[in-house]
């Protein structure tokens, strides 16, 4: 029997808590476009820029209104390109974590290239935010069998890319422990909006997903993008998130946490 395919039954939430939720933002600025084409990026290649100069501010305003501390996954290249947006995120007290350097596909690059991308990302985060990231979500959550070991080796505390469980869990790699905070496709805005689904449908799906995940005591990780094409940064789509955040508030036994707080709980 291969034990990695069996879920643990031993996980418990803190006293008085039934389930947890995180609000995560995949920043995915122009690094998305620039990873496959040369600058300049404009017109239909500027959706990432919409996110950096408009969408992210709309999201920050929304989070402030609902008292949400979110976790932002930001590529190093994007962090260096948009200093004003980075300062706004940081000053609002949100958690900042890594999403590689230039929107690399970690499932298709070599281990050395993965290491280089992490090094460049860490250097950029250190330069922009004054500290290295301790959390990671792979661009589009694509990663290889070795990626988590590499993260553990480099001192990361959590990954938030896998879709293989209902609850967080700890991974042991070479004597180091890494928390995994699972995230599932229907909790992400991109698959709906890249198919041009209306906001009403996305709200309904998020609410239903949250409701069922809460009922089983799982972790619900909302994952949104500030982008103009497949993201939630535009007005109608910001509005679509409000019932979800209101529903969080209506559940007193829900722990709305940052990814770092959840990792602390998993690793304690």
């Amino acid at each position: 029997m291969s034990t990695h395919l069996v879920a643990s039954d031993s996980f418990v939430w803190p006293e008085g808590i039934q389930a947890a939720a995180t609000v995560t933002v995949n920043f995915a600025g122009e690094s998305v476009e620039h990873s496959t084409m040369d600058l300049p990026l404009w017109g239909r290649n500027a959706h990432g820029r919409y996110g950096a100069q408009q969408g992210v501010y709309n999201l920050l305003e929304l989070f402030a209104r609902y008292g949400i501390k979110a976790t932002f996954f930001i590529g190093g290249w994007d962090a260096e390109r948009y200093p004003e947006a980075m300062a706004a995120i940081d000053e609002a007290g949100h958690e900042i974590a890594s999403q590689g350097y230039l929107h690399e596909d970690f499932s298709r690059i070599s281990l050395d290239e993965q290491r280089t991308a992490l090094e460049r990302s860490e250097a950029a985060h250190l330069n922009v935010f004054g500290h290295k990231p301790v959390g990671f979500r792979a661009p589009d959550r694509l990663m290889s069998r070795q990626t988590r070991a590499l993260l553990a080796e480099r001192g990361y505390r959590y990954d938030a890319s896998y879709c293989d469980d209902d609850q967080p869990y700890a991974v042991e790699v070479d004597g180091r422990r890494l928390a995994e905070l699972p995230i599932h496709e229907p909790w992400i805005d991109k698959p709906y909006y890249e198919k041009h689904r209306v906001a009403r449908v996305v709200t309904g799906s998020f609410l239903d997903e949250f409701d069922a995940t809460y009922a089983i005591g799982g972790l619900f990780s909302l994952a949104i993008h500030p982008r103009g094409d497949y993201g939630s940064g535009r007005g109608a789509r910001i509005r679509a998130l409000e019932p979800v955040l209101r529903s969080f508030q209506d559940h007193p036994r829900l722990w709305v946490a940052t990814c770092g707080e959840l990792a602390d709980w998993v690793l304690q």
Partner: peptide, 24 residues
């Protein structure tokens, strides 16, 4: 996981969809 492994993908990260099938 055989689905992804058959395609030459590591059943990890976003491609861990199948592991969920066995576990949950």
């Amino acid at each position: 996981t055989g689905n992804e492994i058959g395609k030459g993908l590591d059943p990890d990260g976003a491609n861990a969809l199948g592991a969920y099938s066995a576990k949950r």
